[in-house]
Write a protein that binds this DNA or RNA. Structure first.
Lengths: 133, 133
DNA sequence: CTGTATCCGACGTGATACTG
DNA sequence: CAGTATCACGTCGGATACAG
């Protein structure tokens, strides 16, 4: 038995980046979510319906779209507006917070787009080097 | 050789891009990687050794650090310099590409940090609403 | 010190079927 | 049309042991 191992209460006493780092990481995780960014991008132009969104993204399952939208809504990035009509209609729209997030995300996306050749080249080169031995 | 492949058959006339979206998504995925961003941040000041990195991050396993660094190296974001000494020493350093990426990432991190209260507030509010009813 | 290989649990993801 | 519930699968991630 290792009593010392079972009890892990202490977190590293980092001076600056301790709790904040974690919290920021959670936001970064949202951005890194396979679908979140796509959804945000699709909502930039204005409110979009559920299936419309699903159609625009293409390749996302109903489940994942629902979960993604839930997460986004939870973080206060999108709003969900229900129209109690028949058939039911639900609009998703970016909040101010969401639009604010979209900006740095777009900057990142722009960077990614511009440097795609370099990255893909680096990958090819690396794979070749690795593959050859 | 496949001449067909070199010619990029049909790109959609969409202004949002379609095939590019995928590629960009892969870069976003890197950013969303739990550890990649942290590693990049740690390397901004200059080259860092393996265990030093592991220590700075704190909470990352040896395996994950290795894999993360591999991925970063593959994408041409960091370089790996081996000093054939005893004991062996390996320095990891950001490339120009990596430093370039660090910029928008930092912008995103800054945004995240500044809007943490709002996001956490939204989460609490959402959870309360969801929990109660 | 710097990695690699292996086992194993946790979680994300998708397909399907069902409800309002 | 919008959303939930369930199951099955693959990958991610950590702990450990081992190697150069």
């Amino acid at each position: 038995m290792r009593p010392e191992h079972t009890h892990v209460p202490a977190l590293p006493p980092s001076p600056h980046a301790d709790g904040n780092c974690r919290a920021v990481a959670s936001v970064l995780a949202r951005v890194g979510d396979k679908w979140s960014v796509l959804v945000i991008m699709m909502l930039i132009d204005g409110p979009v319906r559920f299936n419309e969104l699903k159609r625009m993204i293409g390749g996302i399952s109903q489940r994942m779209l629902t979960l993604t939208l839930r997460g986004l809504e939870r973080d206060g990035l999108v709003t969900r507006t229900i129209f109690p009509t028949i058939p039911p209609r639900v609009d998703y729209e970016l909040t101010d917070l969401g639009r604010g997030l979209a900006q740095p995300v777009q900057a990142l996306g722009k960077w990614a787009f511009e440097h795609l050749p370099e990255i893909e080249g680096a990958r090819t080169s690396f794979d070749a080097r690795n593959g050859q031995g």
